[in-house]
Design a protein around this nucleic acid. Structure first.
Lengths: 216, 216
DNA sequence: CACGAACCGTACCGTACGGTACGTATATGG
DNA sequence: CCATATACGTACCGTACGGTACGGTTCGTG
C-alpha cells in the first residue's frame, strides 16, 4: 500500500497560491463572495490568467476542490500488532479526526459550495468532492476495520456495512447541522468516544467485549 | 399532547399557492432558477405582490420553508401497548419515514438552499429549517423511544443520546450524499432494517434481545 | 352604481457578475 | 540586446438579477 493517490503538482505553485486565496475567500464570505474579480484581486493576478488556467468559473471551483483534496494526507499505518485496547484507541483517533475534518472551515465551505449547486448540471462538484475528498478517509477506515477483523477483534460479514455503521455512529446529524450553520457543535471528543463504544459493542468479538464496561 | 405546532393559515391560500409554485421551481431548477421574476411568472402573480407579501427575496425563502414545514404532519401515536415486536416495527417504520422525508425532492431542495447560503448572514435559513422542519420528527422519535423505555424494552440514561444514535445508524452519510447529488441512494428499506437491528442491540433490554437473531 | 383596495402585467432602474480584449511589464532564451 | 512568452491591471461588454413604479383590471362593499 503506497501513496497511489498522490497526483503531485496538478497545478503550478503560482496556481496553487491563487487557489489558496480563492479558498480563503470562499471560507470568509461564502459562494457569493467568490467572484472571479474578487479572486483575481485577492491573489494579485488577472482575470485573464484565471480563465486561461481554469477555463471558467466552474473550472476554478473544481480546481479548488482538487487542490484542497491534494493537501489532505492521511498517514497510512503501520504493521503494528492490534490489541483490544489499541484497536479501541485507533478507532477513537479515527473518529476524532473524521469529526475534525468535517468541522474544518475549508471542508464546510467546499461542501456548502458543492451542495449549493448540486441540483444543477448533474452535480459535478458533488461527485468530485465525494471522490477526491472522501476516498482517503474511507481507505483509512477500511484498513483499520480490516486489520481489526484479521486480528480477531472485529466480526462482520460486510466491511462496507460496518464502516457505514461506524460513520453514522460518529457523525450522526452533526455534519448536516454544521453545514446548516448551527453553532457550538465542537464537543467532538465525547461524541467520538460514545460512537466507538457503540461500534465495538456491535462488531467487537468477545476479546473486545471482555474489556468493555458493562452496559449502564 | 395536542397539536401545538399547528400555526394554521400562516399565509393566505393565494400566498400558499404562490409558495407551492416557488417550491416547484426550486425543486426543478435549484436556487439559480428561483428568481423573483420566475416565481411571479410561474405563479401568475406580480413581483409587486411578492414584495408586498414577503418583504424581499429572503422573506420569500423563509416563507417557503415555513410553508413546507406546515405541510408535514406526523401522526402522533396512540396509547397502544408496546411489545418487543411492535416496538421493532414502529422503529422500522420511523426509520423508513425518516429516510423517505430526507430523500424527498422538496426537502433536499430546501436543505440545499439553506446550506448554500448558511455561511452568509448568520445562517438564518438553516436555523429556520432545523427548528421548523426537524422538530416534528424529533418529537415523534423521542416519544417512541420514551414509550419503549416505559415499557421496559429499552434501556438508556440519556434519551437524546439514544435518539442521536438511532439517527446516525439510520441516516449515516446518506443525507449528505443525497445533498451532494449522488444518484441511486434509494435502497432505504434494508438500510432501515439494519439500523433498527443495531439500535435494538445497543439499547434493547433482555426482553428485546431475546427475540433477536444471534449475531452472525 | 360608485368607490377603493388588492392585484396583475409590464416596463424600468441600478448594480454586479462572468467573460473578453488590450496595453504594459517582467522574465527567459538565443 | 532583442524576441517571445507569460502574466498583470484595467477597462469594457452583455446579461440577468433584485427591487420599484405605474397603468389597467378585478372584486368586494356601501
Amino acid at each position: 500500500m503506497s501513496v497511489d493517490t498522490a497526483e503531485p503538482s496538478e497545478f503550478s505553485p503560482r496556481q496553487n497560491a491563487v487557489l489558496e486565496q480563492a479558498l480563503q475567500l470562499l471560507v470568509d464570505g461564502g459562494e457569493k463572495a467568490l467572484t472571479t474579480s474578487g479572486v483575481a484581486r485577492a491573489a494579485n493576478c488577472s482575470k485573464e490568467s484565471l480563465y486561461k488556467w481554469f477555463g471558467d468559473r466552474d473550472g476554478l471551483l473544481s480546481a479548488m476542490i482538487a487542490y484542497q483534496a491534494s493537501k489532505v494526507r492521511t498517514f497510512e499505518r503501520n504493521g503494528e500488532r492490534l490489541t483490544a485496547a489499541s484497536l479501541h484507541d485507533h478507532v477513537v483517533i479515527f473518529a476524532r479526526d473524521l469529526l475534525e475534518v468535517l468541522a474544518g472551515d475549508v471542508s464546510l465551505a467546499l461542501n456548502r459550495l458543492a451542495i449549493g449547486q448540486s441540483n444543477r448540471e448533474g452535480s459535478k462538484l458533488g461527485k468530485l468532492l465525494l471522490e477526491r475528498g472522501r476516498r482517503q478517509i474511507d481507505r483509512r477506515a477500511m484498513a483499520l476495520i480490516d486489520a481489526g477483523k484479521r486480528a480477531g477483534l472485529l466480526r462482520f460479514a460486510d466491511a462496507d456495512e460496518a464502516y457505514h455503521t461506524l460513520y453514522g455512529l460518529v457523525v450522526s446529524d452533526l455534519h448536516v447541522r454544521m453545514l446548516l450553520g448551527e453553532p457550538g457543535l465542537k464537543d467532538t471528543a465525547r461524541q467520538a468516544e460514545r460512537a466507538v463504544t457503540a461500534f465495538l459493542r456491535l462488531y467487537g468479538t468477545d476479546k473486545v467485549l471482555a474489556e468493555m464496561p458493562v452496559l449502564g
